[in-house]
Design a protein around this nucleic acid. Structure first.
Lengths: 183, 183
DNA sequence: GCCGACATGTAAAGGGTTACATGATTTT
DNA sequence: AAAATCATGTAACCCTTTACATGTCGGC
């Protein structure tokens, strides 16, 4: 349901084509949300039907025409309404936790390589986040645009959670190595 | 795709009816995964077709007959295969982060009540997790069954992440109050 | 000549959510 | 008398994922 609002947020920042929105999802926005270009085109069509976005066709030479989408006044008020609305928190769905339970019953050793893999990707995500945050604070934090300040805050959440995940992975590895739990 | 494996894990621990699995999801398992009874019945039918679970009908007086499901040998080997398989990490989808971006563009004040709401639920989740973990360590950790040790570890992740989330919420509130970012 | 970027879509399959449906027993 | 618990399901809708489809341009 919220994909529409995510797209409206992107368009509130800057008008774009569906293709650009999808690429934007690949880069910054993929930290908060992920969507394929198919989902985005469909959602743009729906938002258009609801008069929340409009587009103008921009002919290009050599390339196919593009549709540059913009948020409408109605779209803005919809988005404002959504911001104030209570968010129901996402329900957890994390395979690794289930694998921990399953491996305790079936095959205690099978888990180790998987934990190592997760640790590798966690470390890599941490590095990416740190790079992005460092880019943000290249200029003084006070001089960022409100949007970039919000982006900074949102990325900080990723950093704190990934650090917590790393601490937890260390606890798991200690347990797998020693067979004993702490705390 | 993984709902089937979650159900197999539950059944590897103990044979149950679909109804009991659903209730189990409500209690312990809802920290790791969530599913409605409709999803569970559908998935049990599918797993039965794939010979990963079997059931026997147990007649009861007064209540409708129940089907007690058990994991088969084939189900066990499927589950073992799955444990060793790389987990692709869940893609993030958190409305609140998008709301932070949107409110920076449209309505800076609208966010505050939402942040307070999230803080309330986060605190309540923290309390629940702490209670569950304290119940685990009522007896010495070394004397828990392997399954309960795994459960303890998995719940620890929840605790660490929720604590990180609280720290982040404090950063957000500081920003909303002062308009300045730290770090 | 092939691959990747640009740009837009359709189609099918699978998973999740919500509502509907039944029917007995126990609790309030 | 009404509501909750036990127990199983069907139907419809929506969302997500993956694959298919088309066509131009620029670089290697």
């Amino acid at each position: 349901m919220a994909l529409g609002e995510v797209i409206l947020t992107v368009l509130a920042h800057r008008s774009m084509t569906g293709y650009e929105i999808a690429r934007n999802f690949d880069r910054t926005l993929s930290w908060f949300w992920r969507a394929s270009h198919q989902q985005i085109y469909r959602e743009l069509a729906r938002l258009g039907r609801g008069k929340c976005v409009s587009f103008r066709v921009v002919p290009q030479q050599g390339k196919p025409d593009k549709k540059v989408y913009a948020i409408t006044l109605r779209g803005r008020s919809e988005l404002k309404r959504w911001i104030a609305e209570p968010t129901d928190q996402p329900n957890p769905r994390y395979d690794l936790l289930v694998k921990i339970l399953a491996s305790s019953l079936l095959d205690r050793k099978a888990l180790r390589p998987e934990i190592d893999r997760v640790e590798t990707t966690t470390t890599s995500i941490l590095a990416q986040l740190q790079t992005m945050l460092r880019e943000c604070i290249a200029r003084p934090l006070g001089k960022l645009s409100p949007y970039d300040q919000a982006l900074y805050l949102a990325l900080r959440r990723g950093l704190l959670l990934v650090e917590a995940q790393r601490a937890w992975l260390n606890e798991v590895k200690d347990y797998l190595d020693s067979g004993r739990l702490k705390e």
